[in-house]
Design a protein around this nucleic acid. Structure first.
Lengths: 193, 193
DNA sequence: GTCTATACAAAGATAGAC
DNA sequence: GTCTATCTTTGTATAGAC
């Protein structure tokens, strides 16, 4: 892999572990075996690297929605499952969490350049999940009592919060309970799956 | 107020805004109008201050549960309302969030001394909310489909996650939707209130 | 593209005067 | 208890050689 990508990758995992202000260029240099000074050839400032990390992460987390939006996954249940896959995968390890929710904690300590990227992540997932849920309900695949946008907000918030909490406990069972609670309440389980 | 408390208070709001690695003793000195060196008389190291902040925060957030546990709030609905009050208050401002969920994001970048305090916060709320919900159900005040511990985990995670997300959007309506979704799904609204 | 060297500021922390 | 002064290390960043 090219150096730029390796830098972004190392930065992503450092952010996820310690937050944006919890690592330095030196840490990255150590992890990928390059000298600190060389990093500035690829990213003129730490803020630029931060922005690149979120951009890449955002794009990666959008992969499922793109497939689904393109009509490649006609079944609503398959679509929901595919969409939630990456988050559920984080939940299955003791130490992983969503990069954007970690960064959200530090808001005012972050360079301005990163704010919009992070906010956009939450916005697009909010919009997208809402329309998946609404579509699924109209198609008769999902059944739930509240408004679709409330539903989407609830699901997403619970997963994001759950990831942070399970991690500090080092206990994947915590996140499992979030998911189980969600499934039970959504009445999703009632509709055939 | 005494200097120690003013230091802890300033640190708490700085942590909440920027995370633990996003502020320095200099920032605190500036906020409360004292010299940086003087802070070390009260807290020998930043880690000690961090620990003190979480301890105080934890105690404050336990106030409602203590009252309720002491039998001072006989009605389950009143108890739930009182218990959730501080979190809901965070939700009503654009910039507030729970100190512990902010810190949870930085885990590996935090001094060891803080880990146990933070984990304890989440543990005690998990245990306590579970028993409140279970008690309320048995008393016929609450009605919900899932297990009480799943319910508690879901409610708490959703609020914690929701606070971080509403803050980065600067949009209190986001958190309102979390709460609305929770109420709708819990079927809590169905039982008389 | 990567390295070494270096500038410069800030952070964490200590010592000693008042 | 608070101040000034100082030390040390780290972090961000730049310059110039290879």
């Amino acid at each position: 892999m090219d150096t730029q990508s390796r830098i972004i990758e190392a930065a992503e995992s450092l952010i996820q572990e310690r937050g944006f202000n919890g690592f330095s260029f030196q840490d990255i240099a150590d992890r990928i075996g390059i000298k600190k000074g060389s990093l500035y050839y690829h990213f003129p400032a730490k803020a630029d690297l931060g922005r690149a990390v979120v951009e890449r992460y955002r794009q990666r987390m959008r992969a499922a929605s793109d497939l689904i939006a393109a009509g490649e996954v006609p079944d609503y249940w398959d679509a929901l499952e595919l969409y939630l896959k990456p988050m559920l995968a984080f939940g299955r390890t003791p130490d992983d969490a969503c990069v954007c929710i970690v960064l959200a904690g530090e808001v005012l300590g972050l360079p301005e350049e990163m704010h919009a990227e992070i906010a956009a992540f939450f916005d697009e997932h909010q919009v997208w999940l809402t329309s998946l849920l609404e579509g699924g309900r109209q198609a008769g695949a999902f059944r739930f009592a509240a408004a679709a946008d409330q539903m989407a907000t609830l699901i997403f918030s619970a997963m994001e919060g759950g990831l942070l909490i399970k991690r500090i406990k080092g206990d994947t069972a915590y996140f499992d309970r979030v998911v189980a609670g969600l499934l039970a309440l959504l009445g999703l389980g009632a509709s055939g799956r």
